[in-house]
Structures are given as C-alpha cells and as structure tokens.
Write a protein that binds this DNA or RNA. Structure first.
Lengths: 215, 215
DNA sequence: AAGGACGTTTTTGTATACACTGGAGTCATG
DNA sequence: CATGACTCCAGTGTATACAAAAACGTCCTT
C-alpha cells in the first residue's frame, strides 16, 4: 500500500472516530512523524481530506479538522434526503425484486432479534442495503456524492447514542424501503426513505449529548 | 497564487473546455514542464482533479482524463434533479422574495432580447440565479455537491450547441423558477425546476453531435 | 513461429533540502 | 502604559534527487 494511502486512511479514520477533534491543526511535520511517512505523501493525504470536506485549508496555518456539530446535522440530512430519496425512487424502477425481497426479510428478522450484540450486524446489513441500492441506481455521479456524504454521516453518528429500541424501529423502516423497492413502487420507496430519514434525524436530535472527553 | 493552484486551474479549464480530451494520459513530467511548475505541486493538482472526478488514476499508467459521453448525461441529470429540485424547495421556504423577483424580471427581459451576443450575458444571469439559490439554501454540504456537479455539467454542455430558441425558452423556465421562489411556494419551485431540467436534458440529447476535432 | 522470461527504460512514489510567507514576541517610542 | 514596527522563528510551499515499480521490447526456447 502506498504511503499516501496509508496516511489518508489513518487520518480519515482518526477524524471520523473523533480522535482528531474539530479545530485541531494538522501540522505537516507533526503528522508525518506520527504516521511514519514523509511530508510529501502526507500532503497528498491532507489534500484528499480537504477535498472530502473533513479538513479545511487555512492560508499559512496549514489545515485544520473541519468542525461539525448539531447545527450541521440538519444540513447534512437535507443533502441525504435529496440523494437517498431520489436513489430509492430510481432503484425501485430498475432493481431486481428478489434481491430486495431477501433484504427485506433479513431486516424484519433483525428487527425481531433486538438487543444483544446485534448492533454491528445491523450496521452491516444497513450497509448492504446501501450497496444494493447503489448497484441498482448504477450512477457514478450520485454514488460519488453519496460516498462523500456517508463519511460525514459516520462522523455525526457518534454524536448520538442509539439504543436497542431505535435500532428495532429503524430495522422496520429499512424493511419498508427494501419492500417498496422489491415491489418496484418508486413513490412508496421514496416515501419510506423520507420517513426513515425523518425518524433518524429526530432520534439524533433528541438523543444527542455533548461528547465525552475520554476515548 | 500558489503553483499547485495555478496547475489545478489550468488543467481543470483545459479538461472542461475539451482541450484535454477524455483518455489523454496526464504524465507528470510532461504536464509539469508544460505548465512551468515542478512535479510536487502538479501531483497535488492531479490529486484534486481525481477527487473531482475529472480524472481517474490508472495503476502504473498515471492519471487519465475521465471519459464523458452522452451515456453519462442521463446520470449527470439524475444527480442534478436530486440536488436542484430539493434546493429550489428549500430556497422557496427561506429566500428573500425581492431578490428573486428581481431575478425573475431580468430573466423575462433576457428571454425577449433573443439572439445577438446575449449568450454570455444569459449564462452569467443563470449563474447568478444559482448563486442566489445557494445563498438562500445556506447548506455547505449541498453546495459542495453542487459545485462538483457543475464542473461536470460545464464539460457536458460542450457536447450540445445551444441555439437562440433554446436560450429564450430556457430563460422563461428560469423566470418561472425564480418567480416560484419569490412567491415562496416550494412545490411550484420544485416543479418548475424539474420541468426546466427535463427540457434542458431533452435539448442536449436531441441537439448533440460528435465533437469536432478542431480546436 | 509463438510464447515466455528477462532486461531495459520510462514513469511514478518518496524523501529531503531549500526558499519564502505569515505570525508572534519584544523592544522602542509616543 | 499603549501602540507600532522590527526581528526571529515556525511552518508551509516548491524543487530536485533518489528509489521502486511497471510496461515494453527483445531474445531465447520450445
């Protein structure tokens, strides 16, 4: 793996997982030494982070980790609504019914087996639905915007703790989306997606606490 | 201005204006010498182009200008529909009526004064509407996605020659969008945007010819 | 003659040295 | 005591040298 890729992955993970907090100055020499690479590949990594919006370049002062807070969650979800509602609509017109019916079944099952350590498995299942929708939409431009969006979303998600109850409800909402796509009903798929996003946003805003300072 | 910025701007302009055609290999030493910068800032420029989607990194062969053709126009407009329809909806709920009423008047006037050299002026006016909508939406995430989208759009636009008739019709559609936002009617604004995008896409697909090879 | 392997050459990837800009601290002066 | 300018320094921005990897051509073998 190239050193620049390694530096990029490391920095992006550190930012998404809040080890590098918003406002932190990413000094070139400092980070290069920390990650064991030279300044050249590190600069490339910083450029990619800036392009992602995870960092912003300050003239002369280097780049700092971009700030993100609850005020931005509304904005983030506005973009998510635009992209995912349209994606669901398009997917409903082109997707393979069997694939999404299978996903629907798995979401229903995930909704029943609440609690335990099913959280990781649920996130993976949700990721699979995203991938299936992406594949059905088959649009490189939408996919690129969605990929950028999901990075920011992962960072924001850490602001809210999700409880088992929310996970079960979310599973049912996801099952509705998958079901509507399997039924090839664009408007229902769009509505189900919008509903899911609304509930998801409400949950984040109601269950958000200031992040604990211990890692 | 930094050398890396200079290289980025130059390369991006060359790609958007089809001086660097899809498939062209952007060799580092070659482009560095052509633009009068060293390889280091040029590599940063190439990284940004890749992040924009204007170029793709090919293993071992360096980066090549990404291809774009009529098959991609549908995809591009799908993303445009998702972003701009939602933007119009949001803007209609928050915008200053006077500002958009003024824009509406100017579009109506531009629609009457057809022909001549009004093409440049019209493009600038359309750009002003975009900026006003961006400012009203006030959403950094949507804005970033839109900015990326518009770069690709500018490249595709060169595929179709727009005639005065289309410009006049487009002006009326833009006036309708501005008017709906000024009236603070989200659904009408969304519908007007969707209609405009539909007509715009139809025009491109009907009036597209293979690009002439002379520059 | 065709296919594979090896060597050459070109190009990318990385490191480091140097220049230049922006900032902070301090000293002098009003 | 406050404010301004000057100096020093930290850190970015750029260039170049070096190393590694990959693609292409050639030669040998079957």
């Amino acid at each position: 793996m190239r050193a620049s890729d390694k530096a990029y992955e490391a920095l992006r993970t550190d930012i998404v997982e809040w080890r590098l907090r918003p406002g932190i100055i990413l000094g070139e020499v400092e980070q290069a030494e920390r990650l064991g690479v030279s300044r050249t590949p590190l600069r490339e990594a910083l450029a990619r982070l800036t392009a992602d919006g995870l960092a912003v370049a300050q003239r002369g002062r280097g780049v700092v980790v971009s700030d993100v807070s609850l005020e931005h969650v509304d904005d983030l979800f506005a973009l998510r609504r635009a992209l995912e509602v349209e994606s669901a609509r398009i997917a409903a017109g082109k997707a393979d019914p069997q694939e999404f019916d299978s996903l629907r079944e798995r979401f229903l099952q995930a909704g029943r087996s609440t609690g335990y350590k099913s959280r990781e498995a649920y996130y993976q299942l949700a990721g699979e639905l995203d991938e299936s929708i992406d594949a059905a939409v088959d649009n490189r431009y939408i996919e690129q915007s969605l990929r950028s969006l999901r990075v920011h979303l992962a960072r924001v998600r850490r602001l809210a703790q999700d409880d088992p109850g929310r996970l079960a409800a979310s599973a049912l909402e996801h099952a509705a989306i998958a079901g509507a796509i399997a039924a090839q009903n664009p408007e229902v798929a769009a509505a189900a997606t919008q509903l899911h996003l609304h509930h998801s946003l409400e949950h984040i805003k109601n269950h958000a606490g200031p992040r604990e300072d211990t890692e």
